[in-house]
Design a protein around this nucleic acid. Structure first.
Length: 850
RNA sequence: GCCGAAGUGGCGGAAUAGGCAGACGCGCACGACUCAAAAUCGUGUUCCCUACGGGAAUGAGGGUUCGAUUCCCUCCUUCGGCACCA
């Protein structure tokens, strides 16, 4: 599902061996050798089951979830960037006293493994599970607190049994249906795609970048649009505004009316049109149908047949990209048919034009050239009548009584029967008085009704591929489509299939697999041979983590009651309108089926940015700018890599990698090591030095705590670096060995523990503390210790800093003012005059205006 | 075209709630250690000025304010999303 480093996935590149950094033996007995030390602790933590998450009703729970990877073969630096800060946050929450669940798994179905099989014949199952093996090992080198006993693999029958079961639950809710329609098809992946998976101006496949084409196919859909309005509501969730905006724009709700237009003549019927501007109905001087509109053939008059057919053929040849170009010259042809404008009974011509899309609204529009730019351009080109029905405050600029452009602003309705004189503003929908009045009237007159339209489409889930969860449906000639009975789940993928890039599911080509019996009549029947979109698997994986081996249902209710909902979810923003929207829909559908509770599955969401190559480009094998985490771990140790990952960029922004920059984090870790392992000197420091140290420690603790709360990982590291520098100075001044020093060491390691878990554990043991530091409570800030005794305040004169004064921290405004005015520099500037104004910002500065 | 995010030294970035711009780190320079180098440690490092001192500076321009990286307006650039959406 997630963390795709590059559009094209690569499989199993040759493992890169990096030279292990030559470690010069230090003089003391404690050289920093991260590779052996990290391995030692990872094995001990595993053996001690330190990170197993077990229900504990005496503690508040915290479900921390980070998006699971697709097992592409190797862990990418992007995975580290997504996972290690999430791990640090989860560890912090654990130290804060929460019972934390932080699971990991694999989104294991998907095309790359199947495409590779077509190339080299290696079975996707074999390849996938080998890749998982490899990536699990690589992930363990992070030293993250993943609870591996809860690991899920979406491609295991134990998992996809329930993916199939969920499909059936949605089917039973009336949310899954089969429909023939023009769907997006990726000619490279040889399968259909959901609309969310078609990206960019050239409408390319989200996965492989190939431009998609349209195909008419019979496919399974989920009725996601049923939840369109609810999905626009983000009450009760703490999600980034950008994600909420992306989802809102994707759903794109627009309010208006559906109005019935009657067709005149031999083929008489009512045609609905959607409009957001029912207040301009009186200005509708023609209608335009999409060339694909099913009524076109029926209404076209014989003498126009040839032109219409030619135009339809021409439109069909064009790609959606060409048709979608907004600046393209409008074209169209007349059908010979007329309709009646329901509000003024005017007889208006019906045209077809490719600027009307079958996929939006009803595929037919009322054209109001006076107040719509596209209709205006069309009317101008084909010399159709333009009737203004909204009069602006300042009259429309016209040449010889002809409008020069469509008017889309506010004004007064004219030429609109009894509505003439009604005010129209720029508000949309009912908030606009003109629209509201017309809406009420057309409903009362039976001409149409208030209506809401969405850009959001139902979720197309059929994939014509092998390596996915089978759609558990059976087709019988007599009884149509029926779900596979529960006791026959899972429908297991056959292992003996042939790999051919045919554009048909290999399951269809299997000689026997599709043959089965009808659940209703037990007669011969066939299985659905398409599989499910892998986003179906990832829509509920957070539930399977609760009890990955539970076999009485998709999850153990006891685990559900304790752990759900997900408290913190982290992952890439590229899933804003895909996974993150699907999983919300899925949750709401399951809620209505009585399977889960609450309105949202994930309460808090945070997105990380992307690590770019050193050249500032997106990392990809073809560009040769890929950074391999394994190489870095071998060279520097996992703690240093974790520290640099968290330090080098604002997490939500991401940044280009810098191979030199990592040296700074490496130095930090090693300097901490030295600080803690060099023999302590007798404590000879002054009381003031020790007090200053203690102040800095507690100020840092306050800052680090706040930064963990806010996911500001980069400043956590810089604060720790600063404190380390202070500790070196304090040691120089003889603080080592004092009680304050011991407290500083203890708090320092606890603050470090979530970031660099191995060295923190090692040094904790070195200090003679009891195992494990990861079971220690997060330290408390001693506010009294953190408080400054005296503060230095800048003194501004006319906005420029001219002097600094030092005052006691508790000094009153009057005292600060007096001290500032007493400054020699200020006196010089004042030249004996009284200042016009003196502003004392307590604790900040003094500003004097002269 | 519409919606959103971002623009701060050579570089990554920092700056509670409008209050010392450049924390921390990289790089660079100089010094210590060394026969020498690496590593390590120390010092310095926004730019400009005949440098004691002063001036400019957070994409550009304007505004509010004693005071703006922060708030408001206009514009530019980059990135992301949507787009003949009726």
């Amino acid at each position: 599902m997630v963390e795709k480093p590059a559009p094209v996935r690569e499989e199993n590149p040759a493992p890169e061996k990096a030279p292990v950094r030559e470690e010069k033996p230090r003089q003391d007995n404690h050289p920093y050798q991260p590779q052996a030390m990290e391995k030692k602790w990872q094995e001990k933590w595993e053996a001690d089951k330190l990170y197993r998450s077990v229900i504990d009703n005496t503690k508040p729970k915290h479900y921390a979830l980070t998006m699971l990877p697709y097992p592409s073969g190797d862990l990418h630096i992007g995975h580290w960037y997504a996972m290690t800060p999430s791990d640090a946050r989860a560890r912090y929450m654990r130290m804060k006293g929460y019972n934390v669940l932080f699971p990991m798994g694999f989104d294991a179905f998907g095309l790359p493994a199947e495409n590779a099989a077509i190339k080299d014949g290696v079975h996707p199952m074999k390849r996938t599970f080998q890749n998982i093996e490899r990536m699990r090992k690589q992930m363990k080198s992070m030293g993250a607190m993943f609870d591996w006993e809860r690991e899920v693999v979406s491609a295991s029958p134990e998992y996809y049994k329930w993916t199939e079961w969920f499909f059936i639950q949605l089917y039973k809710q009336g949310l899954a249906y089969r429909k023939m329609s023009a769907v997006d098809w990726c000619p490279n992946c040889n399968t259909t795609l959901a609309r969310e998976q078609v990206w960019g101006d050239d409408r390319h496949c989200e996965r492989c970048g190939t431009p998609v084409i349209k195909k008419d196919l019979d496919q399974w859909f989920f009725k996601a649009t049923k939840y369109a309005d609810e999905l626009l509501n983000f009450d009760g969730v703490d999600w980034p505004q950008t994600v909420k905006t992306l989802q809102t724009n994707w759903i794109d709700r627009s309010e208006g009316a559906e109005v019935q237009f009657a067709i005149v003549g031999p083929f008489s019927t009512l045609v609905p049109v959607f409009t957001t501007r029912p207040d301009t109905l009186w200005g509708a001087t023609f209608m335009v149908f999409s060339p694909e509109h099913p009524l076109v053939d029926k209404i076209t008059h014989p003498e126009y047949k040839q032109a219409v057919e030619e135009y339809k053929a021409q439109a069909a040849r064009q790609t959606e990209i060409q048709r979608g170009a907004a600046d393209k010259e409008k074209t169209g042809v007349f059908t010979g048919a007329y309709a009646i404008n329901p509000v003024n009974k005017a007889r208006i011509p019906i045209w077809i034009a490719d600027y009307v899309m079958m996929s939006y609204g009803t595929g037919a529009i009322m054209a109001v050239p006076a107040h719509d730019e596209r209709d205006f351009a069309f009317a101008k080109k084909y010399d159709l009548p333009i009737v203004p029905v909204i009069q602006p405050e300042v009259p429309i600029e016209a040449e010889n009584g002809v409008m020069k452009a469509a008017y889309v602003g506010p004004g007064i309705m004219i030429n609109s029967g009894k509505f003439s004189g009604t005010k129209v503003n720029t508000e949309k929908g009912r908030k606009n008085p003109g629209i509201a009045k017309v809406l009420d009237w057309i409903a009362a007159e039976g001409l149409g009704k208030e209506s809401v339209n969405y850009r959001y489409r139902d979720w197309l889930i059929s994939r014509q591929r092998y390596w996915g969860a089978p759609i558990p449906m059976i087709h019988c000639e007599i009884h149509g489509w029926n779900p596979v009975p529960d006791d026959q789940l899972p429908v297991v993928l056959p292992e003996d299939v042939e790999w051919k890039p045919t554009g048909e599911s290999p399951l269809k080509l299997h000689p026997t697999w599709k043959n089965t019996t009808c659940p209703v009549c037990s007669g011969p029947a066939t299985r659905e041979t398409d599989t499910m979109d892998t986003f179906m698997c990832s829509s509920w994986y957070h539930l399977r983590y609760l009890s990955p081996h539970y076999d009485k249902g998709p999850f153990d209710p006891a685990e559900y009651d304790y752990w759900m909902p997900v408290d913190t979810y982290t992952g890439g923003i590229e899933h804003a309108t895909m996974h993150l929207l699907y999983t919300r829909f899925f949750h709401k559908a399951l809620r209505d089926a009585g399977i889960v509770e609450g309105h949202e599955p994930m309460l808090q969401l945070r997105n990380q940015g992307m690590v770019l190559g050193e050249d500032g480009d997106k990392m990809s094998k073809s560009k040769g700018n890929v950074i391999a985490p394994d190489v870095l771990v071998n060279k520097y140790g996992a703690d240093s890599v974790r520290a640099y990952i968290m330090f080098f960029a604002r997490w939500e922004m991401g940044a280009p990698w810098d191979s030199q920059g990592i040296e700074g984090s490496v130095r930090w870790v090693r300097r901490v090591w030295t600080l803690f392992t060099d023999p302590a000197q007798p404590a000879t420091a002054s009381a003031e030095t020790k007090k200053d140290l203690r102040r800095k420690v507690h100020q840092t603790l306050r800052k680090v705590t706040r930064d963990f709360e806010n996911f500001e990982f980069n400043t956590i590291i810089s604060s720790l670096m600063e404190l380390m520098n202070e500790m070196y100075k304090a040691r120089e001044a003889g603080a080592a060995g004092s009680d304050e020093w011991k407290e500083a060491q203890e708090i320092y390691l606890k603050m470090m523990a979530p970031v660099t878990p191995h060295i923190a554990e090692e040094l904790w043991a070195h200090l003679g503390k009891s195992y494990s530091i990861h079971q220690q409570a997060w330290p408390k800030v001693d506010e009294a210790a953190a408080k400054e005794d005296s503060i230095e305040l800048p003194v501004q004169i006319n906005g420029k800093v001219r002097d600094r004064i030092t005052v006691p921290a508790e000094a009153s405004e009057e005292q600060i003012k007096a001290a500032a005015l007493n400054s020699e520099v200020v006196k010089k500037f004042l030249e004996g005059q009284e200042p016009k104004k003196v502003i004392v910002a307590k604790g900040r500065l003094v500003s004097i205006v002269i």
